[in-house]
């Protein structure tokens, strides 16, 4: 009898917290996104009006507004492209690293793994700031390029989309390496030997054996990089210029500068539907599928 009470306490304390401080806030975003905007404080009308009975006062105007204006859709696409390019670079750098770490001997492997993840523990903001120093007009990279005679005058490396990609790849790389390593670490290295013995050359071994076996790691790592990068605000703000607008910046300005709360909420809720919902559904389906296949 006693343990029943105990279990309830364990299940429901976090349940209560998350419903109150996570689910309800998401519901409020949705509520405001279908409210009619107006001047005042708060800058939207209530969705329930009580005069001569209950009247529901909602609109999809805010969604129409953001989906018909290229300013919003364009920035969202910019963010998707940015996230895609950054994910590909993380994969290209992260895969060989994860592979060679996973194939090292066990002592070296643990040391290397810690070395790769440790920068991730140091401050995110300061790691982005470090690139600001490196890419300055009189920064280290320009000094090296000048001394090697590759350029005759300092290049403008900062405040453009390439600097943003650089900063993202740098800060998100550990998030790619960890899941990749997790899967590569599991598989049997003898498979590589076996495939060589069976006459497959390096390339065929890679594409027919190593790559297919690491697909789950690639998917996991790519999602961990792709989704947060679409919503990234700080890196474009620090390293980017005015050549590209991104989703995060637009959302920030819609709320803080334009004070259009319904519009900002519609942007945020669209982001949840487009980015997060597919993952959640995928996760639930995947866990059901794997449960079924294990039995």
């Amino acid at each position: 009898m006693k343990n029943k009470l105990f279990e309830k306490y364990f299940v429901f304390s976090p349940y209560f917290w998350l419903v109150l401080f996570f689910f309800i806030p998401l519901a409020i975003i949705f509520k405001i996104s279908i409210s009619i905007s107006e001047w005042g404080m708060p800058p939207y009308q209530d969705i329930f009006l009580f005069d001569n009975g209950l009247k529901i006062n909602t609109t999809f105007e805010n969604y129409v507004y953001i989906f018909s204006d290229f300013y919003y859709i364009g920035s969202f696409l910019n963010s998707m492209i940015l996230a895609l390019i950054s994910t590909i670079f993380c994969l290209l750098i992260g895969f060989p690293l994860a592979f060679y770490i996973a194939t090292s001997n066990i002592r070296l492997r643990n040391i290397l793994l810690v070395l790769v993840v440790i920068p991730f523990w140091s401050s995110f903001l300061l790691r982005v700031y470090a690139w600001k120093i490196i890419l300055q007009n009189n920064g280290i990279l320009n000094v090296i390029l000048l001394n090697l005679g590759i350029t005759s005058e300092p290049l403008q490396l900062l405040y453009n989309q390439y600097a943003v990609i650089m900063g993202i790849v740098y800060t998100y790389l550990p998030l790619m390496i960890l899941p990749l390593y997790g899967y590569l670490n599991k598989f049997d290295l003898n498979l590589i030997e076996a495939s060589k013995d069976l006459g497959l050359n390096r390339f065929k071994t890679f594409f027919k054996v190593i790559l297919p076996l690491s697909v789950p790691g690639i998917v996991a790592g790519s999602l961990l990089v792709f989704i947060p990068v679409v919503g990234e605000f700080i890196i474009p703000e620090m390293l980017g210029g005015s050549d590209r607008l991104y989703y995060g910046k637009i959302l920030w300005e819609e709320f803080f500068v334009n004070r259009n709360w319904p519009g900002a909420s519609a942007l945020a809720f669209s982001g949840i539907i487009i980015l997060v919902l597919p993952i959640v559904i995928f996760q639930i389906l995947y866990s059901r599928w794997s449960q079924k296949n294990e039995i």
Partner: peptide
């Protein structure tokens, strides 16, 4: 994304 969480 943190931005959406923060706004909510």
């Amino acid at each position: 994304p943190e931005l959406i969480l923060g706004l909510s």
